[in-house]
């Protein structure tokens, strides 16, 4: 590859190591924090059962934060706009700011960090790949700085590519963190009702609720089936027999789900279902909801304006 016009810096092994550890630092921290949390919750042993006799907003935390009291429809609309604004950012500095803001939002909900961290961990694979591949495969522009890694003279590490990749990482993590305040501070039915109020068809809302409910049922069925395979000596391996067995297992799962649809549908009909679920009582939209909406849109607008008008270049 020809990168004569570029600014070339040759790195040694130690420098390479430290570069990559810097790049992976956020994931590493998230993973460690999550593991620590998980460890904490198991060592604590018996978690106290939440009080199910009053309406819970979400099973992972009752709260009275500004997100919990925000009418779902306005909350979703606002944060969805915010999410789109965040993914439109181009510069690392502002993406980092957005990440910080979103982390602040999670903190404001007063909820446990376990689930936000688990979300970040779920992103790890995809983003990790981006961080490695994009800088190595980005076309090199003239006047750009590239690092040459030991043993990879053909694959210059482009700093512009690294900037791009890290910006994406920050944006993805920011939106992932925003998911919890946006979607987990009301119960799922309320959240989906919020989507319906925004114009999503009510039938789709009901489909999502039903699908969500039966995921747990089928997960249990699949778990049981796998258990009954296991106690008969089945150990999944990389071979055709494993795939055949799993194929039968999946087939059985699908058959049972088709059979269950009929039964669920009959049970619904027998209790007077006429094509739509009876409406829930809607949450009224107050001025406070709108004020919060305006506030968050303003923050998002500042991020975007800063990104376009004041692009701080970190490296």
């Amino acid at each position: 590859m020809n990168f004569d016009q570029a600014h070339v810096i040759v790195l040694n092994g130690v420098q390479t190591m430290s570069l990559f550890s810097c790049l992976f630092l956020p994931f590493f921290c998230a993973l460690v924090a999550w593991l620590l949390k998980a460890e904490e919750s198991t060592s604590a042993g018996q978690k106290t059962e939440p009080d199910w006799s009053s309406p819970v907003l979400d099973r992972h935390g009752q709260g009275s934060s500004l997100f919990h009291t925000w009418a779902p429809s306005i909350k979703i609309a606002t944060l969805l706009i915010a999410a789109f604004v965040i993914v439109s950012l181009h510069t690392l500095a502002w993406a980092l700011t957005a990440l910080f803001c979103c982390a602040l939002c999670v903190e404001l909900t007063g909820m446990s960090w376990t689930r936000p961290l688990r979300r970040l961990a779920a992103l790890g694979g995809f983003l990790g790949m981006l961080v490695v591949i994009v800088p190595l495969t980005s076309p090199v522009q003239s006047g750009e700085t590239v690092l040459v890694l030991p043993g990879l003279p053909e694959w210059p590490y482009s700093l512009a590519g690294a900037h791009l990749a890290l910006t994406i990482v920050c944006k993805a993590m920011a939106v992932a963190l925003l998911m919890e305040p946006m979607l987990a501070t009301s119960s799922l039915p309320q959240t989906l009702q919020g989507f319906t109020d925004l114009g999503l068809p009510a039938s789709l809302n009901q489909m999502i609720l039903l699908c969500h409910r039966y995921i747990f049922v089928f997960q249990e069925e699949m778990r049981r089936m796998q258990r009954s395979m296991r106690v008969r000596g089945f150990v999944p391996r990389t071979n055709i027999a494993t795939l055949r067995t799993m194929g039968s297992g999946f087939g059985m799962l699908f058959i049972r789900s088709f059979e269950r649809t009929e039964r669920v549908y009959e049970a619904m009909l027998s209790r007077g279902y006429q094509g739509s679920f009876p409406a829930e009582v809607r949450q009224k939209i107050t001025n406070m909801d709108l004020v919060k909406g305006v506030l968050f849109i303003m923050i998002a607008a500042i991020l975007l304006a800063g990104d376009r008008l004041l692009p701080l270049i970190l490296f």
């Binding site: 039938s203 995921i215 799962l253 699908f254």
Partner: peptide
């Protein structure tokens, strides 16, 4: 058909569950 929607929803959950199962590969 509107009446078919609940059924599609329930079947979707089984696809969801199936897509979460990991198969060993090397």
């Amino acid at each position: 058909d509107q009446r078919e929607l609940p059924k599609i929803a329930v079947v979707s959950s089984s696809f969801f569950v199936a897509s979460l199962i990991h198969l060993p590969l090397g």
